[in-house]
Structure formats: structure tokens, C-alpha cells
């Protein structure tokens, strides 16, 4: 019998996510969030989305944690404990309802790895069949991102550039 490693993985995901919310110290919350990103990247890898898993591991678990920690050291060097008020009655009613609605909607999604799902029959077969002849690029994801959808990727790069400029402008300290 093959050990179903998905169940401990999803369990760890839930535990780290709950821990990042419930923990009393900001530093621990940041580190737990990094752990959560790492387990999430394992889940992406399990789904076969290796490129997404790569980005999640590098950005979520690596760079994001560093940025959070630098912000933490820059703002509250001494007291990083959280004072969290108890959730209101509205929160307790609305969020379980929202979660139930999302789960209800998720039951209508097509089966995982279903070859006749709408996403798999529209344009994906064309990409899979022709991308190597067209671009000599074995990785179909790269071929789609950088060649067929290169204008989208360029605007994405513009967004990253704009975000960097905005961070510099907003976080700039005044020099005397």
C-alpha cells in the first residue's frame, strides 16, 4: 500500500495557516507564514505545476519572509506581541457562510486531470502540439508565457517595475 502523503501535507498546510493567524507573536507569525508558503509550494508540485511551485518557494518562503522581517525590525524593534480583540458576531456568521459557499461552488469544478474540461479543450491542445515546432522550446509554459502571450508578460514586467518605483517613493526617508 502506498502511503498517502497528500493527507499529512494538507494537514501541515492547515496547521501552519491556523498557527500564523493564532500565534501571539508577530515574528513567529512571519516565520509560520514562510513555512506555510513552503508547504503550499509542495502542494503545487504535487499538482504538477512545477513552475508555480518554484515561484511560491522562492518568493513566498524566501523573499517574502525577508521583506516581512525587515519591516518588523524597521517598525517595532521591542514589542512584537499581538493584541487581538475577539472576533465579532458578524465575522463568526459571515465567514463560515462564505466558506460553505466556496466549497459548494468547488464541487461543480471539473475533475482534476480531466481531458474534456473546458480549460483543456479550448486552446491548450494547440499549444501542446505546436509550441515545439514553432519556438524550439520544450517547456510549454515558457513558450506560452514568453512567446504566445509575450505582451501580457511585458505588462506584468511593467507592473513589477511600477511596484518597485512605488516602494522606493513611499518608503523613502527624508534626509536632513
Amino acid at each position: 500500500m502506498i502511503f498517502p502523503f497528500e493527507i499529512p501535507l494538507l494537514l501541515l498546510l492547515l496547521v501552519t495557516a491556523a498557527g500564523a493567524i493564532l500565534v501571539k507573536d508577530l515574528m513567529s507569525a512571519v516565520l509560520l507564514l514562510g513555512t506555510y508558503s513552503f508547504f503550499l509550494s509542495l502542494v503545487w508540485g504535487w499538482f504538477g505545476a512545477v513552475d508555480v511551485a518554484f515561484v511560491e518557494a522562492v518568493v513566498g518562503a524566501g523573499l517574502g519572509t525577508v521583506l516581512f522581517l525587515l519591516t518588523l525590525f524597521g517598525t517595532a524593534p521591542k514589542d512584537t506581541r499581538l493584541h487581538r480583540p475577539p472576533p465579532s458576531l458578524l465575522t463568526l456568521i459571515v465567514f463560515p457562510l462564505l466558506g460553505f459557499l466556496l466549497l459548494y461552488a468547488a464541487s461543480d469544478l471539473p475533475e482534476f486531470r480531466d481531458p474534456s474540461s473546458p480549460a483543456s479543450v479550448h486552446i491548450s491542445p494547440t499549444y501542446l502540439e505546436q509550441s515545439y515546432q514553432d519556438t524550439h522550446t520544450p517547456n510549454v509554459v515558457t513558450a506560452v508565457l514568453m512567446d504566445y502571450r509575450s505582451l501580457d508578460t511585458m505588462v506584468e514586467t511593467v507592473v513589477i517595475f511600477a511596484a518597485g518605483i512605488a516602494c522606493i517613493l513611499l518608503l523613502r526617508r527624508q534626509v536632513k
Partner: peptide, 14 residues
């Protein structure tokens, strides 16, 4: 990134 997982975004972040 053309032959396996990866690419410009991840390479740049690394």
C-alpha cells in the same frame, strides 16, 4: 527555463 521549470521571474528573484 526553456527546457525545464524556471524562467526569467524565478531566476531574477534568486
Amino acid at each position: 527555463g526553456q527546457y525545464g521549470p524556471g524562467g526569467g521571474f524565478v531566476g531574477g528573484v534568486i
